[in-house]
Design a protein around this nucleic acid. Structure first.
Lengths: 337, 337
DNA sequence: TTGTAGGCGTTATCAC
DNA sequence: GTGATAACGCCTACAA
């Protein structure tokens, strides 16, 4: 390991025969430097392999050019086979890359991790913080915002002392479209597998289900899930126990829908002949399920992109950040319903 | 947004009626501070909500307590439905969390992104750099190592000017076990869907296939893939075109195996009756495929954990880092073969 | 257009 | 034990 001493501005200046200030100007792209000198400096930078020390730089500029994305989950949940996080990371990443900002991903599943994240952000390690999802009345977004740190949430924060701008999708509209499709095709005993009720996405999809069925004068039947495939299997079994004649299920996530498909198959039900199934997400794999899944598509990657864009505006000091942006959802009809 | 001024050491010192040096000692947990003073300082820290400025701190300590994990792919590839990256991130993340280090994930798919990553690391933003996978003769690991930055790779780097320590799995052993299983169960026309040949994982699995078949005196039949499901579909079709009587396929990744299952079904072949299929990875979803996939399990998350552990030792200055650690693979027999 | 000099917030080396 | 004080490497008025 060649622990070569890292050259400083000073070293470059000496080599180029100019002052530190001039080197700094060239490095930062100032236009008020004579061409000859600029070239001499650039040559010296090249020869020495000079790269500015980030700590020294941000000590004075108070900027780091990197932005955090908080995943308030354990690594195990974030990167299991749930494709929500990957999609949002993809969206955020592409947008920040275009802006030449560095994305700093942070998993904050444990209490310790949570605290580390807070300190990390407050310590000025990043210029802003985005939240990929929010559990319950999470105090962190408000806390950081109060510290003067730019914050944007994906998903409406349930609590936000200083209101934090957010990006979300139209849960209610998507659910309503799904249920209308089921009702129109003659289904009358429509159950749901709900998502976790400490998350806005889980709450709003369940509310949408209840409201729509009530308006249609149909009974509702609810089983609890947590967005995972396993919980879908369990919930589907519970639903069949409660009403063996149900003819449709709306699952609040694609993974739970896949679990439901599996449980239905094991119970000897045909999909969609006996029971129609609709999910929510439209992950890639839902095109390959057996049968291919009818589902509500939510533009997760797009939400990530929009969130990153809002963050960049916030950091740039744009005073007119929309307090909320709601992206549309769309029913994708395949075979399962 | 309450842009409250961030308190400094100075402010805390004034409030507690001590010097900056003493506050620094307390904050950093020095034991040589009188109890009464320590408490006074802690109170002041609490009241002011003081958090050390990371830039100032690392300017002098030359440490950041964060470690980068480079994903040399576009965000689209990293977080598609390929579960390799999530697994390695999970492993690395859990280990670093335990060590109270911050994991900084960086996607470096584009040339620009690649360059940004290099600068980011050289600028001293992180204490060390891990590579999640390596394409071809990637110069970056060696380049960073030459700069004196601690580097660990997952997967043997093909090029490493100063040799870089790495963690990998036993590709050859896994492939051999898979092929032995096929041969033992009577298969004689065993094809393979190879992975990308610019990656060690792709290379070694193909080599393992060729060597084992040759030793068994069986013919080999190879189609190229790139680890994705789609490439698996295409490759399987090509293989059937070349030898419609083949009776087994070894795919170098689970996703390609899934693609192969799909293509075989579409071609009217039964699995495993007509054609046996074996994959490589053992992702969660492979337990749910139709039929459940026989596959070579590689301990990806464990590789991530080991890699992180080596990195921590490297940073701590441990002089005895193993140049290579190879983790075992295991054949998981399900239904497809 | 270029150079000088002060300061960003910490840590660490000294005396006291 | 505690307090001055000098770095750490860079940016940026301000002067020249």
């Amino acid at each position: 390991m060649t622990t070569r001493e890292r050259p400083t501005l000073e070293a470059v200046a000496r080599r180029a025969g100019v002052s530190r200030a001039t080197v700094s100007r060239v490095v930062n792209g100032s236009t008020t430097v004579a061409v000859a000198i600029r070239e001499a400096v650039n040559r010296a930078v090249e020869e020495l392999g000079y790269v500015p020390n980030q700590a020294a730089r941000s000590l004075v500029t108070r900027q780091t050019d990197s932005i955090a994305l908080i995943l308030p989950e354990t690594a195990n949940r974030v990167f299991s086979d749930d494709l929500f996080f990957p999609a949002i990371i993809r969206g955020v990443g592409s947008e920040l890359e275009a802006a030449d900002k560095q994305l700093v991903l942070m998993m904050a599943g444990s209490a310790a991790g949570y605290h580390r994240v807070e300190r990390y952000a407050v310590a000025g390690h990043v210029d802003g913080v985005m939240f990929a999802s929010i559990h319950g009345a999470d105090p962190l977004p408000g806390l950081l915002a109060r510290r003067g740190i730019p914050v944007i949430c994906s998903g409406r924060p349930m609590l936000a002392d200083p209101p934090v701008p957010y990006v979300d999708v139209d849960h209610a509209g998507g659910v309503a479209a799904a249920l209308r499709h089921l009702i129109t095709s003659g289904r009358r005993r429509i159950a749901t597998i709900a998502g976790p009720q400490d998350m806005v996405a889980g709450l709003e999809r369940l509310t949408g289900y209840r409201d729509t069925l009530q308006a249609a004068g149909l009974p509702s039947l609810v089983a609890a899930g947590d967005f995972t495939r396993e919980s879908g299997v369990t919930a589907m079994r519970a639903l069949l126990d409660q009403d063996s004649d149900l003819d449709a299920v709306f699952a609040a996530s694609d993974l739970m829908a896949h679990g439901a498909l599996q449980a239905l198959r094991n119970a000897g039900r045909r999909v969609p002949e006996d029971v129609a199934v609709i999910g929510f997400d439209d992950f890639e794999i839902s095109r390959y399920s057996d049968p291919p899944l009818t589902t509500v598509r939510q533009p997760i990657a797009e939400a990530g992109r929009v969130m990153a864009r809002q963050m960049l505006r916030l950091i740039a000091g744009d005073p007119e950040i929309e307090p909320a942006i709601i992206l549309p959802t769309e029913l994708i009809i395949r075979t399962s319903a």
